[in-house]
Amino acid sequence: MHYTVCDFLLDLVQNSIEAAANRIQLSIIEEDGQLRLTIEDNGKGMDETTLQRVQDPFFTDGIKHRRRKVGLGIPFVVQAVEQTGGDFTLSSQTGKGTILSFTFPAGHLDTPPLGDLPGLFLSAFCFDGDYELIIRRRNQERELDYSLSRSELHAVLGDFTDAGALVLARQYLESQEA
């Protein structure tokens, strides 16, 4: 299976949640022939030494899995960006959070497909934890422009572990992309 952009993003959202962020902002913007993606969190951030190593697939902080020796989320993104001539920036401050941005040229043959956005949003909202996730989505060509908030959806639907709520959430998220 080939990765989609949504797969990358789900990995990165999990990174933010695991970094104890209680506010995460994700933006997915398609305009002027570019796909621009940004994820910003107020989690524990990374020091300079860690920052220099995050692109190494054989580096992980070891917090989640003590003996695990790989961390593939960011290296996969960097690899895809390099293959397409896109851009990648990562900045982080210990105790303040992390901002990760990457851009793909939409028309490049190796730019991964966007994938299932409603599925990504649903999964990103469903991890355990008390975090707010704000999603900003824009597609110039399709005149799409909307925002989503995990806490707002939570207030309407209640428990995200409930299949009934998840089915309705999926319908709602699909309708935003229609």
Binding site: L10, K64, G119, S123, C126, F127, T161, A163
Partner: peptide, 27 residues
């Protein structure tokens, strides 16, 4: 993600939503 969605759909179809908690975790 396909497995997750299929589980959500099947739990809803079998009308056992009230007894089932569906969660995601890492590796």
């Amino acid at each position: 993600k396909d497995a997750f969605e299929a589980i959500v759909k099947a739990v809803d179809e079998h009308k056992i939503t009230a007894n089932v908690v569906i969660r995601q975790t890492g590796c």
